[in-house]
Nucleic acid binder design. Structure first.
Length: 472
DNA sequence: ATGTAC
């Protein structure tokens, strides 16, 4: 397919497709690597009426119905909501906790092994292992988010304030639409990691010299040990997504609405079906943020076991990259879908959570296993992409293709196994998580270069991996 | 992604 491309400069391209224009933020190298399939998908998404804006971040790649890396906006009054443009793992996101430790404190491999073992004791990493928080009623959690947790699981006020949202408000009456077994499936999963690309990583920081002052304000220092968590809404969000893909698909058939891609599902925001999905999506966001909170609670317990009961692991921030949020833009309420896209608000922006109003909030971007992650901050210019930046490196090949192509030996080499700087992993064998090797992902440094070059955000700190806990 | 699957 040939498309007219407008190059705006500064890693910003506008691609004219059959049904509207797609904005792409990528450096020339990444831009050239996009396959035509991602443009076909964007064009199918642009067929949905009254789209206000659609953009790709540089980590964009093919997903179900809609590419991962999409920001898509409609007006609340005449727009649509789409489970396909939210993504299957509703509320999937990132969280970072800081420590007072320096990397030299955990350079000893025995210490890092002890931390991995302790974390696995407090955070279930096997699919069917329940968390031991039987005293938490998940119905309180899905209704009131972090405010639904018993006080004994909230170490201090900061854990409620340094998050993108602690309590997503919605009409709880919609919970009656859910199948009863969702409760049984999700109960016991709170505080568990999940599998796939989810992880807990122990990292050390390399501060960007140009943002030392901001880093200090955020409590960050060079060489600091931090913990990065990537997880989502587990069975709760998966069941909401699956159920409403079915329901909305049937509604589209009844309404006579169709799209060339049968996997692209959507409904008017004002319709009963759209309202039901939207409200139940918020229940999943409450589960997701609470899940990461409880994982972090377990991680703090583990650090206390290794370093003493006085150990504190303050939360830096928690934010999501799979959701649709009502936001005010251009003076109007709009529904901003971010599927594999991270909000990065600039300093002073009114949408910032109060704790980060002055500085802008930390935007947490994971790399692939064994490569760097990043802590960034949004810029004013990010407005052009509705303040969305990348959500990570972005896959470059499928799980199956990766397993056929990469060997366990190559994976071990990329983790520097055997050396002092080895990225230690909880799994005895890397065979089971081979599809998560760095060779399956784009080069995260190129992705970050694209975002910085497009003036969407700046790097505050680079996070280098020292130990990783993966689920199965 | 998912206590996977019309």
């Amino acid at each position: 397919m040939d498309h007219k491309i407008i190059a705006h400069g500064n890693n910003h391209y506008e691609v004219e497709l059959g049904h509207g224009n797609l904005h792409v933020y990528a450096n020339p190298e990444i831009f050239q690597s996009f396959e035509s399939r991602v443009y076909e998908m964007a064009d199918n998404n642009l067929r949905i009426p009254r789209n206000v804006y659609m953009g790709y971040t540089p980590d964009a790649h093919v997903g179900v119905g809609t590419c991962i890396g999409t920001t898509a906006v409609w007006n609340m009054k005449d727009g649509i909501v789409s489970p396909s443009i939210v993504g299957v793992d509703i509320g999937c996101g990132m969280r970072v906790h800081t420590t007072s430790l320096h990397r030299s404190d955990i350079q000893d491999k025995a210490v890092r092994r002890a931390l991995i073992t302790a974390i696995e004791k407090y955070v279930p990493t096997n699919e069917r292992t329940n968390s031991h928080y039987a005293d938490i009623d998940i119905m309180n959690v899905v209704q009131y988010g972090l405010k639904g947790l018993p006080a004994s699981y909230v170490p201090n006020e900061r854990w409620l304030t340094h998050v993108e949202e602690s309590d997503f408000q919605y009409d709880h009456a919609f919970l009656e639409h859910l199948p009863p077994k969702i409760r049984k499936n999700a109960q016991g999963q709170l505080g568990s990691l999940g599998s796939g690309n989810h992880f807990i990583e122990i990292q050390y920081l390399e501060l960007n010299e140009e943002h030392q002052e901001l880093a200090a304000k955020w409590g960050l220092f060079d060489g600091q040990v931090v913990v990065m968590i990537h997880s989502g809404s587990r069975a709760w969000g998966a069941m909401v997504g699956r159920e409403y893909n079915k329901v909305l698909k049937e509604s589209m058939r009844l309404w006579g609405v169709s799209n060339p891609d049968p996997n692209l599902i959507y409904a008017p925001i004002v319709s009963q079906e759209g309202q039901t999905y939207l409200n139940l999506m918020y229940s999943s966001l409450n589960f997701a943020v609470s899940n990461r909170h409880m994982i972090a609670f377990g991680v703090q317990e583990a650090f206390r076991e290794v370093f003493g009961s006085g150990m504190e692991t303050p939360v830096l921030y928690d934010l999501m990259h799979n959701y649709a949020l009502k936001e005010f833009h251009r003076g109007q309420p709009m529904l901003v879908h971010r599927k594999g896209a991270t909000r990065a608000l600039p300093p002073k922006h009114f949408l910032n959570t109060p704790a980060y109003k002055e500085t802008g909030h930390p935007a947490l971007i994971p790399g692939s296993m064994g490569t760097s992650s990043y802590i960034m901050v949004g810029r004013e210019e990010g407005l052009k992409n509705f303040y969305s930046i990348c959500h990570g490196a972005g896959r470059t090949r499928s799980r199956r293709a990766t397993k056929e192509m990469v060997t366990v030996d190559q994976f071990e080499q990329s983790l520097k196994v055997g050396s002092e700087d080895e990225v230690m992993v909880n799994h005895r064998s890397l065979e089971t998580i081979l599809d998560e090797c760095p060779q399956a992902y784009k080069d995260v440094d190129q992705i970050i270069d694209s975002v910085v070059g497009a003036s969407l955000a700046d790097v505050v700190a680079k996070c280098k991996p020292m130990a990783v806990i993966k689920g199965i």
